[in-house]
Each structure stands twice: as structure tokens, then as C-alpha cells.
Amino acid sequence: MEFSEKLGVSDRIVSRWESDGEQATLRMVNQAALDTLLAKADQDAQGRFIGILAADDIPTQAVIEPDEEQKLSGEYVKHPGDGKLMAHIPEGIFLSGEDDYPVWVDEFHIDTFPTTNADYARFCAATRHPVPDHWENGRCPRELYDHPVVHVTWRDANAYAAWAGKTLPTAEQWEKAARGTSGRVFPWGDQKTAAKCNVRETGVERTTSVSRYHSGVSPYGVYDMVGNVWEWLASPTVPGRYELRGSAFTSPLFRGIPSALNDADDTMHDDDTGFRCVIPMGHLVPSKR
């Protein structure tokens, strides 16, 4: 009763969602209300929510170890270079590409959130690297600190990664972190639910905070793997061009399917392209968050 009142829907609708489970179809306004409630919840509740999402992704293919994602997803560490939270991605096979071809990926950590304007500002201050052209008087507006940095070229992204002691993710690393091991279409499952991410159908028409879309996290608790901004990868397509994945607020939902390919010249920059970093398994500082 209390839960339905907070959402502004009837008890009958909530009961139907519960009975339909993963097959439930929510109106965008209801999904947005759920995201808002989750954003206001305490960190323990948010952590339990991410754990529940991860536990739903139990692999069905014989080539995958049965409890791998359920056991390991949601493990976060803090990187000593740039202080960002990183999610643990275990070694093993995942189903890759449109054909779900099995691919082995070694163990690694990936940034839980895309690189933000605040992250990038610290990098620029430490290295005197040029700031993005659109920052007013060379400074990012305070209200955009927790939005993903944009107007960064592949070369800019690679320079940040080197400064932080990280690398850009390969296509295989990025896709596994986004999809999990069992071939789900989107980070949250197979449902085409635009309200779980910042894409064209959502109607936001700009970047959003990197921690906004709690219900759209990947099986490993990684945010914004669909929508908000395209992300530069380490994988070249031809000399001077590199892969991009994940789509952006300017893109329709179908472009955000993690197996979908895109690329661009390494000097390209625009208002819907950013990045995140990875690091091989190593000595990192555990987070108390």
C-alpha cells in the first residue's frame, strides 16, 4: 500500500508487476518514478537492488560457469590513481556479438561510471592538458561536475587513461562488462525499456548524472553502458579510427545494444562522446562505500 502510494499507482498495478516479473512492461512515467525512489534510497538499499539485478543473470550456456556472475557482481574497489570506483569483472567466457559467439576475457576492473567532468578537470589541472572547448572560461559549470565529460577525442581519452594508470577498454572487455556472460541484449536484460537509460526516446536531450539510472546497471553493477554518451574504446577498426560503444542521449535505444558497432576518427569530438577506463587485476584499494 505505502509503496504504491509513493509511486502514485494502484495496488493492483504493483501486484501485476510482481506477477509478471521480468516480462512486466512499465509506462515510462512509472519507470521514472521507480528510478527517482531508488535515487532517494540509502546506499545499503541501492546496493541490495544492484545485487538483485545481478542475481537474475544466471547463465544458461554450458560453456559458462553457473554461479560466476551471481557470486562476483557488485564488487567495487577504489583506484589509487584517480580515486574512481571500479567494478570487478571475473575472467571467463562470455557470449559476444550479435551471434553470441563465446569469447574468453581475462579478469579486470572497469570504471563503475563514465569519466565525469570533475574527474577530467583534475586531470587537466595536474597535467595542463587542454580542457574541452565548450567549458566556459576554461572551467566546467558546477552543475555538470557529475555528468560525463564530452568533447574529448580518442587521444584525449587515452591521455587521461595513461595519467590515471589505466587504459581504455577493449571491445571485448567493454561488451562483457555491459552484457554479462549469458548473452542478454541490454545490460538490464532483453526488454526494450528506454526509461532505464538516457537515450533519444527518454526525451532528456542532454547528458545526465552518471549515477542517475540505477535500474539500468549491468550484471556487474556498471552504470550508463547504454545511453548518456558514446564511449571510446582501445580497439581500432582501421588506422586512426577506434570503436565506440553504448550510444548516447542523441541516439535511439536500438543503437545502444552493447553488441552494436560504431567507430570514429581519433580526432573527432562532439557533445555526446566520452569514455571510461579499465585496469587488469592488480592491487587496488577496497572501497568502504
Rank of each mutant, 00 (worst) to 15 (best):
Glu5Trp: 08
Leu7Gly: 05
Leu7Ala: 10
Asp20Arg: 13
Ala24Trp: 05
Asn30Tyr: 15
Ala32Tyr: 07
Ala33Asp: 06
Ala33Gly: 07
Leu34Tyr: 06
Lys40Ser: 12
Lys40Pro: 00
Gln43Ile: 15
Gln43Met: 14
Gln43Val: 15
Asp44Val: 15
Ala45Ser: 11
Gln46Asp: 01
Gly47Gln: 15
Gly47Arg: 15
Arg48Asp: 05
Arg48Val: 11
Phe49Asp: 07
Phe49Cys: 12
Ile50Ser: 06
Gly51Gln: 10
Pro59Ser: 09
Pro59Arg: 10
Pro66Asn: 12
Glu68Cys: 13
Lys71Pro: 00
Leu72Val: 13
Gly74Glu: 04
Glu75Phe: 14
Lys78Gly: 01
Asp82Tyr: 08
Gly83Val: 11
Met86Phe: 06
Ala87Thr: 10
Ile93Trp: 11
Phe94Arg: 01
Leu95Asp: 05
Asp100Phe: 07
Tyr101Glu: 14
Pro102Val: 09
Pro102Asp: 02
Trp104Phe: 13
Asp111Arg: 10
Asp111Cys: 14
Asn117Glu: 06
Asp119Ala: 05
Ala121Phe: 05
Arg122Tyr: 08
Arg122Ile: 10
Phe123Ala: 04
Ala126Thr: 08
Pro130His: 06
Trp135Glu: 01
Arg142Asp: 08
Arg142Tyr: 05
Glu143Met: 10
Asp146Asn: 09
His147Tyr: 15
Pro148Val: 05
Trp154Lys: 01
Trp154Gly: 00
Lys166Arg: 02
Lys166Trp: 00
Thr167Tyr: 06
Thr170Gly: 12
Glu172Lys: 13
Glu172Cys: 07
Gln173His: 03
Trp174Cys: 02
Glu175Gln: 13
Arg179Pro: 02
Thr181Phe: 05
Arg184Phe: 09
Phe186Arg: 04
Trp188Val: 03
Trp188Asn: 04
Asp190Ser: 10
Gln191Met: 13
Thr193Ala: 15
Thr193Lys: 12
Ala194Ser: 04
Cys197Arg: 01
Glu201Lys: 01
Thr202Trp: 00
Arg206His: 12
Arg206Cys: 11
Tyr213His: 04
His214Ala: 08
Ser215His: 09
Ser215Ile: 10
Val217Cys: 09
Gly221Pro: 01
Met225Val: 02
Val226Glu: 03
Glu231Ala: 07
Ala234Tyr: 00
Pro236Asn: 05
Val238Phe: 11
Pro239Ser: 12
Arg241Ala: 11
Tyr242Gly: 02
Phe249Ala: 03
Ser251Arg: 02
Ile257Asp: 01
Ala260Thr: 05
Met268Trp: 05
His269Val: 04
Asp272Ala: 03
Ile279Glu: 00
Ile279Gly: 01
Pro280Tyr: 00
His283Trp: 07
